[in-house]
Design a binder for these strands. Sequence first.
DNA 1: AATATAATTCCATATAGTGGAACTTCAGGG
DNA 2: CCCTGAAGTTCCACTATATGGAATTATATT
Lengths: 257, 257
Amino acid sequence: MGSETGILTRYAAVLDALAAAPGGLTLIEVVRATGLPRGTAHRLLGALRGVGYIAGRDGRKVYVLGPRLLRLLHLGQAPAAVAAAVRPLLDGLTARFKETAFLAKLTGREVRSVAMRMPDSESQSYVQPGRLMPVHATASAKAIWAYQEDGAVEAILAEPRARFTDKTRSGEAELRADLERVRHSGFAVCDGELDPGVLSYACPVHLDGAGVLYAIGMVGLSQRLGRFGAQEVVAALQEAAEAFAKGPLAAVESDRP
Amino acid sequence: MGSETGILTRYAAVLDALAAAPGGLTLIEVVRATGLPRGTAHRLLGALRGVGYIAGRDGRKVYVLGPRLLRLLHLGQAPAAVAAAVRPLLDGLTARFKETAFLAKLTGREVRSVAMRMPDSESQSYVQPGRLMPVHATASAKAIWAYQEDGAVEAILAEPRARFTDKTRSGEAELRADLERVRHSGFAVCDGELDPGVLSYACPVHLDGAGVLYAIGMVGLSQRLGRFGAQEVVAALQEAAEAFAKGPLAAVESDRP
DNA sequence: AATATAATTCCATATAGTGGAACTTCAGGG
DNA sequence: CCCTGAAGTTCCACTATATGGAATTATATT
């Protein structure tokens, strides 16, 4: 006979308490902060840890906000905010290679370009923000999908894949092999599989505790971009990816369970 | 008889579904995405909205991630990431006024400085990062506390307040009046209430949907900083605060219920 | 080693979540 | 304007699930 919110209020109270304490809290501290009975608090913390909303630090005695919460927030983040955060990094890449640099983001089960920086000399844009990046024909989508949960990947593999050029690799086995290669090498390449004559590289952005949700890449005509060694381009992309992961959108303070 | 996580798994599934859909989801879409029965999904959504983890858009038919989740992110955010995000803004302020600019953050029930930029000419630092900002004697803490929930404010008011200088306003009534004044004017001032001869201004950062968690301020010797009109300094601070609120750490896509 | 404090486990109880079905609202087409 | 199907909302008997005090084990602290 009052406002009905159910059990969520209590979980929310626990999360609030943890969020308010930078260094994390022990069970007893949570009890004091929330007024919950010890047994109850213990169970709630266990459940929260079970779903990944909080994580245990040290000998698991200190609880902090967990990776899954961070993932939620990144996914829900307005594209404009993300775009603002990478801009400087893309500028740097473009200045160095005189080719287009971009950031791709996983949204639901699609990868789309969210920010892009073209060199002044370029007139044609290969990755307008918002462009859908197909899994089987773009480096950025491969860089991202190579690090997603198996279940989600299987769902993607089951979908039909269009052929864009005669180089497009639309077979399932090919795609599996490509993803595997990405996991080993740490980056992805596509050469003419989406647009003829267009080469692209991409590196995954490993967010501390939140997996991979973004990829940073470069695109350009094979003739021009191809003159740089893959090594060189990839090294620069990896550097940018690391910087982005540590940047303004970076992790809540977290750690491994 | 398997892994026990309780009801949280279902809430998490709903949140995941919402996070994966940039534009929000309707009840039926949530049902399809999660496989939950209609009635159940409806109730879960209601509870989530009740605690503010999701918000209704349009005629409340479309659900998106809500403000409270954003607040969690900000509170849990590593200070270093926040500091990186404001740096350019602080640089701008310092360059313009040749005085120290800083960002203060609410952590639990304390306000602390998290980032600071001194002019090259300055040798003494009034707001080293990490410094505690007492509610009754600093502009930044007042700027933040003026916009917190009544309950939390009352708790703060109940605490004892030290006298730092003979100008320190430690009375409860004085503090209440100060907070009220901040709410009306939109900024806070402190003149010698913490350190003698030191003047400071601060403006709250209104985060879209997440209330006020930060304040941006300037400090300096009254003699020097005082030569600028309050109007002028405050206008610049407000501009910076707005830019910060819209910046990289900005809101999840949200709106009013 | 002794002692206090925190973490964890247990379990009888009842509270709170469940989901199918009934009912209402809404949008669009005839 | 009314009909019709789909989406949204409410209801309620059923039972699975959360509850929290007390007992137990682990961990500091002196």
